[in-house]
Design a protein around this nucleic acid. Structure first.
Length: 946
DNA sequence: ACCGCCGGGTGCC
DNA sequence: ACCGCCGGGTGCC
């Protein structure tokens, strides 16, 4: 019944309704809502931004005496269809903010409403203006919101039943009570297809930045010493964060927008009141910039604030007892084995590399005693989805049961930390680094196929560490997720913006965790739009925002439409639950982080005559083809081909040998066998994926997960496109080109091993290139000046990195390498090796642009050579931040090589545009599919000089 | 009176 | 519901 997969036939990603049932109740059954409520308001969020107010209508709520839900005058209510009502299939329920039913809409009105709601012609929102004390019926003021194009249909349908809607009052667009409004919003119906008033992105951005300008507040500037079991001295801003987090976890205040009024608790946004005290979240969002030490601060919190503000009772270990205790109390082995035997014992039953991990894990808390190596991981495939690389011993034996606790402590004791796989090892590292060696902590890494499903075992830990993928797959596919059976002391979502998509399984899984305290760590609480906040708030369980309708009505829509009062509400909400410092933030006049300077230089490279000839030849051919697509109007249908042309040009800017796949235009493919077609599609997809174009799925506008390619050669996330196909049955069309879309025609991307082939081809005789010459010149010059300086050489093309190896060797450079195709174990080795300050350690690291997650720390380097520009400037910045971060002692100099008169120069101008766009990160309007298309087309024109 | 009027019973969807 | 609506009782002035 709970079976769930990404296959085409399930209702994957079914959006939940904007209903009034409280999410907590329904969702508590694992994943149930996906199956029960697939008929949703669909037309999902992106449309909501285009909604305008059609008008208002007064009606009646009847049957009050049959229901328990009560309302106040001016309280917002939700309307919910009840199609299975035995007396009237048109029934429309009226619920209060809590989701309790108040009554029904009178049947005469319910009839047109049902039609309007069911056909998604409008969303109907209600406010009970007065008559809250009535016993039998009460009035309801309804506002109708929808897409401009549906307005007439709504008016007509109401008219058909004898109702006439009052046009929106000037200034009442927000449906929020006109007295609250500035009145600056114009009439909404004059601008078809768009919201009436959009603040410019600049306005929104600057407004949004103000949300976080709050360091003057007392409770966020107080410092507190870290717990003594933290071996590391906390920085001032970390002490502030710790103090603030402890305050939040012990806070007894009402949540934002709640007041106590004569023995009732009153929500000032919705005018809802109830007897029961609404719970405030014992937690919040730590939104510090990357590199400010969110992980360390959180570790300090775990140790410093257990129950009642007391520190976590940890056992200090005496050295002579260490081994004994270790073996005797291991969870897995009841035997009295010393740690070494223990490892050997386990090793016998598993493949190589695993015992090493065990030792590292165990010893990670006792570095001195056991001469710990840093945690090392066995071979793994590169995929983030892969769960096979962490050996089971890591998970089972890292849990060591030796601390005797005061059992009088009531309640859960375990902190659950969920993070992306890429930072899992960072957590382990940091726990190792920062917790005093004589302190014992029970840590269980809940990961891998043999993770224990025993809630008891988990509940005995101090910390359980797992990944979003595990969380989601446990939640989605089985009924036996121990993570969801337990009530946790604390749940921490690291890189918490991971759950910003409310339809993603991992989001649902996270929302269904039970915890006393909840934390979100993220450097970017809002990535694209205000909508990103909703899942986070929902996770924090702040009443009444867990239900999207109330979030949307009270905050999102007012803010999106430029309402000042809405913005103030958002601001006070954010201030209340968020602590954010940027790298630029200051404490007592001093920067939070004193990072050395960072300079970026662009070094132009001129191609040799020979290189230029090849480049021009390929460019002319490509330009010809692309302009033909333009004249045919089929550019986007040939998008993969276009990317292919651009890719080849970019490769040629680096080195002629990179461009091995010579012209391969697919033509129209008249007489292809299915096998050939399939192969072509797969090749195209690989091209798209490997071109570093940072392709996004046109459905979710997020980066591609589980990419599949359609027969029309467009790439989407499999779950996204499956949903499209299902909802448009039986004649689904490609969202990008409207070509026929068939489930059975989707081609999946075979598992990656992409680079390997091209690496083999490097058998051909090595030749230099202009760029390599420029690089080598700079490197040798640098070595003369300072032989110890360390450099990162970054490229999107791993083959290029391989080509660079040759001259590096010839010139006697010691180098290491880090790219996505390397097993985790080798990566860790490469990083450690490079970071080492020992004489003879590598001075150069060859780094693929996207290798490693945000946690990657390469502060040993103070020079970066970016060999080729990336599509997305943010990817470059992220890469630079790997050495320009906490711990960097020297000024960082970045050199970007850009070939004169080439696609690379054009890429720079697109980068600049994107940077400007990103500056308006608070743009609330998601670009429409056609806008995305147009942007792409324009980009292509710029890139190929058309 | 195949009406009007009266007053009791009754009440969401 | 201090309403509306229903349907039974009733019937000149």
């Amino acid at each position: 019944m709970f079976s769930k997969n990404y296959g085409p036939s399930t209702g994957y990603g079914g959006n939940r309704t904007y209903s009034c049932y409280s999410s907590g109740d329904v969702d508590s059954a694992l994943g149930f809502e996906d199956f029960l409520y697939t008929d949703d308001t669909s037309g999902t969020d992106e449309d909501l931004d285009l909604f305008v107010l059609f008008g208002n209508l007064r009606g009646n709520v009847v049957g009050l005496r049959y229901y328990t839900g009560v309302v106040n005058n001016n309280e917002m209510v939700a309307l919910q269809r009840e199609p299975n009502n035995p007396y009237d299939k048109n029934a429309v329920k009226v619920n209060n903010v809590n989701g309790d039913q108040v009554g029904h809409i009178k049947k005469e009105l319910a009839a047109p409403l049902a039609y309007i709601i069911d056909n998604k012609l409008a969303r109907v929102e209600g406010i009970v203006p007065y008559g809250a004390k009535n016993a039998f019926t009460m009035p309801i003021q309804m506002s109708f919101w929808g897409k401009e194009e549906n307005k007439q249909a709504v008016l007509d349908r109401l008219k058909m039943h004898g109702f006439k809607m009052a046009p929106p009052l000037k200034g009442s667009e927000l449906g929020f009570g006109s007295n609250l409004l500035s009145g600056r919003a114009g009439p909404s119906y004059s601008a078809p297809g768009h919201t009436a008033v959009q603040m410019t992105t600049e306005q929104l951005k600057s407004e949004f930045d103000k949300l976080f300008e709050d360091l003057k507040e007392d409770d966020k500037t107080r410092e507190i010493q870290g717990p003594e079991v933290i071996g590391t001295q906390l920085l001032p801003h970390q002490k502030q964060a710790l103090a603030w987090m402890i305050l939040r976890e012990n806070n007894k205040e009402l949540p934002p927008f709640w007041e106590e009024r004569n023995n009732f608790f009153y929500n000032t946004l919705t005018n809802f009141a109830e007897k029961e005290r609404p719970e405030n979240v014992l937690g919040g969002i730590l939104a510090d910039d990357m590199g400010l030490g969110k992980t360390l601060t959180t570790i300090a919190l775990i140790l410093a604030n257990f129950h009642n503000g007391k520190p976590l009772p940890v056992e200090k270990i005496r050295c002579d007892q260490f081994y004994k205790v270790f073996g005797a109390t291991s969870v897995k082995n009841e035997g009295d084995l010393p740690v070494k035997d223990h490892n050997c014992n386990l090793e016998s039953s598993t493949s190589s590399g695993k015992s090493e991990t065990v030792q590292a894990q165990l010893s990670s808390f006792y570095p001195e005693r056991t001469k710990a190596k840093k945690p090392k991981y066995s071979e793994r495939s590169d995929s983030e989805e892969s769960e096979e690389w962490l050996p089971q011993e890591t998970r089972s034996t890292s849990s060591i049961q030796l601390a005797k606790r005061d059992d009088s402590e009531e309640g859960p004791r375990t902190t659950l930390i969920i993070c992306p796989l890429s930072v899992l090892s960072n957590w382990i590292d940091q726990l190792e680094q920062h917790i005093s060696p004589d302190v014992h902590l029970n840590l269980y890494v809940y990961y891998g196929p043999d993770r224990s499903k025993d809630p008891e075992l988990l509940s005995r830990q101090d910390i359980v560490l797992t990944t979003y993928n595990i969380l989601a797959s446990d939640y989605g596919s089985r009924g036996d997720s121990p993570l969801h059976k337990l009530k946790w002391l604390r749940v921490v979502l690291d890189e918490g913006h991971t759950i910003r998509n409310p339809n993603a399984l991992q989001t649902k899984a996270a929302l269904n965790l039970e915890a006393q305290r909840r934390w979100i760590l993220t450097g970017t609480p809002i990535q694209n739009s205000l909508k990103d906040l909703w899942s986070l708030l929902s996770f924090l369980k702040l009443k009444p925002f867990a239900d999207r309708e109330w979030w949307h009505r009270t905050i999102q829509r007012p803010v999106t439409m430029g309402d000042q009062a809405g913005l103030r509400r958002l601001q006070s909400l954010i201030k209340n639950i968020t602590l954010r410092r940027t790298k630029m933030s200051k404490i007592k006049g001093k920067p939070v982080l004193e990072l050395p300077e960072r300079k970026v230089f662009i070094q132009h490279v001129v191609l040799t005559e020979e290189e230029r000839q090849i480049y021009q030849a390929v460019k002319n051919e490509g330009k010809l083809a692309i302009s033909r697509y333009f004249s045919e109007g089929t550019v986007l249908a040939h998008y993969a081909d276009v990317l292919g042309v651009l890719l080849r040009l970019r490769q040629l800017c680096c080195h002629p040998h990179l461009c091995t796949n010579t012209s391969s235009f697919s033509g129209t493919g008249v007489n292809n066998t299915p096998e050939e077609l399939r192969e072509k599609l797969v090749n195209k997809m690989k091209l798209v994926l490997s071109s570093g174009s940072d392709e996004e799925c046109a459905v979710c506008l997020d980066s591609l997960t589980f990419p599949v390619i359609t027969h029309c050669a467009h790439v989407f996330c499999k779950p996204c496109i499956c949903e499209v196909i299902q909802s448009e049955q039986p004649n689904a069309k490609c969202p990008l080109c409207r070509n026929e879309l068939r489930l059975e025609h989707l081609v999946e991307c075979p598992l990656e091993e992409s680079d390997f082939e091209s690496v083999k081809k490097s058998d051909q005789e090595w030749i230099p290139s202009s760029k390599i010459n420029a690089l080598m010149h700079a490197l040798i010059q640098l070595r003369k000046e300072n032989p110890a300086v360390k450099c990162l050489i970054v490229s999107q093309f791993t083959t290029f990195l391989s080509l660079i190896e040759t001259p590096l060797r010839e010139s006697g450079f010691v180098f290491t390498r880090l790219d996505g195709s390397m097993p985790q174990k080798k990566r860790v080795e490469a990083i450690q090796c490079f970071q080492s300050s020992q004489a003879g350690s590598p001075t150069i690291m060859l780094l693929s642009l996207k290798a490693g997650g945000v946690g990657l720390n390469l502060t040993a380097a103070s020079r970066v050579f970016l060999m080729d520009p990336a599509w997305n400037p943010a990817a470059e910045d992220q890469c630079f931040d790997r050495c320009h971060r906490l711990g960097q002692k020297q000024a960082v100099v970045i050199t970007k090589f850009v070939v004169k008169n080439s696609v690379e120069e054009n890429m720079l101008s697109i980068q600049n545009k994107k940077r400007k766009l990103a500056a308006g990160a608070f743009a609330t309007k998601k670009p429409t599919a056609s806008e995305v298309k147009q942007t792409k087309i324009n980009e292509i024109k710029t890139l190929i000089d058309l």
